[in-house]
């Protein structure tokens, strides 16, 4: 799970309130937690709040860490729950929209059939394109968004993601597939237009 997994932290030292060990923990995980929060919430100020709340909870609850999952999975679980709780509190009106029935949340049938893979890197990774990528994630229903962020942005495995979200590995795979197909559709819409603009210039 990235470089944070490589460092070994002493749970015993953390439990006894060793501040230097806490600082090592924060140093190892703050980037991961901030990125998770930013991609889940889409707003730097909210992401910072979640970042702080996550570590406060980690410190407060370290006694409850039982070692059944890895420390990083446990931290991810706290951060993800903080982000989801925040979103539900801030946008209660989203909850009904974000919990569609299985059929409504089915596989996105591909409508956009444009091969935009050939666009140059400068176009694919422009500031505008990146903003569009982020906005597309924010339009995903929460249950798809959480899986997509854990798997494709944070790079967690299917098993790790299922532990963090407390859902089956099959549910992770299904939601990831749906999230990716929806995002492909949105990106095809956007990059298809860019491709059209380039062709009209030639």
């Amino acid at each position: 799970m990235g470089k944070a997994e490589e460092i070994t932290l002493s749970i015993q030292a953390l439990r006894s309130g060793d501040r230097a060990e806490y600082a090592r923990l924060v140093d190892a995980y703050y980037q991961l937690v901030y990125r998770l929060a930013l991609k889940m919430l889409g707003n730097p100020q909210d992401a910072e709040d979640i970042l702080q709340e996550t570590f406060i909870k980690v410190f407060r609850n370290i006694d409850k860490f039982d070692g059944r999952s890895s420390l990083s999975t446990w931290i991810y679980r706290i951060a993800t729950n903080e982000a989801l709780m925040f979103l539900r509190k801030k946008h209660p009106e989203l909850v009904s929209i974000d919990q569609p029935t299985e059929t409504e949340e089915g596989e996105q049938e591909p409508l956009q059939i444009v091969d935009w893979c050939c666009l140059p890197e400068s176009e694919l990774m422009s500031a505008e394109a990146k903003a569009h990528l982020d906005e597309a994630v924010m339009r995903l229903p929460l249950r798809l968004r959480a899986v997509f962020v854990l798997r494709d942005i944070q790079g967690l495995s299917t098993r790790e993601s299922s532990e963090v979200l407390d859902i089956s590995e099959m549910a992770v795979k299904t939601r990831l597939s749906r999230a990716r197909l929806r995002l492909r559709e949105e990106l095809s819409d956007y990059f298809g237009d860019r491709l059209g603009e380039r062709k009209s210039l030639l």
Partner: peptide, 13 residues
């Protein structure tokens, strides 16, 4: 384009 979509998000991350 699905593969490219995923790789763009990896890169952006």
């Amino acid at each position: 384009t699905l593969r490219k979509t995923v790789s763009l998000y990896h890169e952006e991350a």
